[in-house]
Amino acid sequence: MKFMTDRGITQFIEFCDKTRQSCTNFRDFFEQAICQISSERELLLQAFLFFNSDKFFPSCIDVVLFEQSPDGLGNTHFGKCDFIYTTEKDTLFLIETKFINTRIGGKTARNTRNSQRNKVFEQVISLKQKLSQFWEIPEELLDCGVFTTDPRLLPRGLELNVATKSISIEQLENWHLAKKHELKTKVNN
């Protein structure tokens, strides 16, 4: 895929095309994870988003980076992007996921949730800045989103210009059971 709007985006996409797994490999990875997941809730949330990104972030077209640093080289001081997608507007869309347990109560749980809410926004904004600097991509060509299990993040996302989407834990668990059944049925046929 060639992006003619910005040299930095073009170079980033070309670099990712040389080093990344294909979407088919991502699909295989997430299908295996769905069938094997026992307690890794964050990975389940990422799998859900991978299979349903068009419903939550409709401008996203293709995953170019998953769970890697924005330099694409694995330098941990840059942090890791959960997903970077190309978009139909010839821009890039960074998405951070966070499983936030909204089912438990108490002061410690509330403090943990508040910390996670703050962190997910800080992460995606910081990664946007690092991607912009490293690849010399104007920040206006980089969009950000967060995807969580906490619907209370929407107002904060609006303030920060970060697309904020969520799914309830119950919906995620129901999807997991249905998708797991679908995949096992497909294998057995």
Rank of each mutant, 00 (worst) to 15 (best):
K2D: 13
T5Y: 03
R7N: 14
G8R: 02
T10Y: 12
T10F: 11
Q11K: 15
Q11A: 14
F12K: 12
I13P: 00
E14F: 08
D17K: 14
K18Q: 15
K18L: 13
R20D: 10
Q21N: 14
Q21P: 00
Q21Y: 13
C23T: 14
T24M: 09
T24D: 11
F26H: 15
R27M: 07
D28T: 13
D28L: 12
F30L: 07
E31N: 14
C35F: 00
Q36D: 11
Q36L: 12
Q36G: 02
I37V: 12
S38M: 03
E40R: 11
R41Y: 06
E42F: 01
L43A: 08
L43N: 05
L45C: 04
Q46D: 08
F48P: 00
K55R: 10
F56S: 00
P58V: 03
I61M: 07
D62M: 03
V63I: 15
V63R: 01
V63D: 00
V64I: 15
L65S: 11
E67F: 01
E67L: 07
Q68Y: 02
Q68P: 00
D71P: 03
D71A: 07
G72A: 04
L73T: 06
N75Y: 08
T76N: 09
T76G: 06
H77W: 10
F78L: 08
G79Q: 02
C81W: 00
I84V: 15
Y85I: 05
T87Y: 04
I95P: 00
E96S: 06
K98G: 00
F99A: 01
F99L: 03
N101L: 07
R103D: 10
I104D: 12
N111K: 15
R113Q: 15
N114I: 09
N114L: 10
S115R: 13
Q116T: 04
R117K: 13
R117L: 02
N118P: 00
K119P: 03
F121V: 04
F121Y: 11
V124Q: 03
L127K: 05
Q129L: 13
Q129S: 14
F134W: 11
W135Q: 08
W135T: 11
I137S: 04
I137L: 09
P138L: 10
E139Q: 15
E140H: 14
E140R: 10
L141E: 03
L141M: 09
D143F: 09
D143V: 05
G145D: 05
V146L: 03
F147S: 06
T148L: 04
T149K: 03
T149F: 04
T149L: 08
P151Y: 06
R152Q: 12
L153A: 04
P155Q: 10
R156E: 14
R156N: 10
L158K: 12
E159L: 13
L160K: 13
L160N: 03
V162I: 09
T164N: 04
K165C: 10
I167T: 10
I169E: 13
W175G: 04
H176W: 15
L177I: 14
K179P: 05
E182R: 06
K184P: 07
T185N: 14
T185V: 14
V187T: 14
N188F: 09
N189M: 06
N189Y: 09
N189D: 07
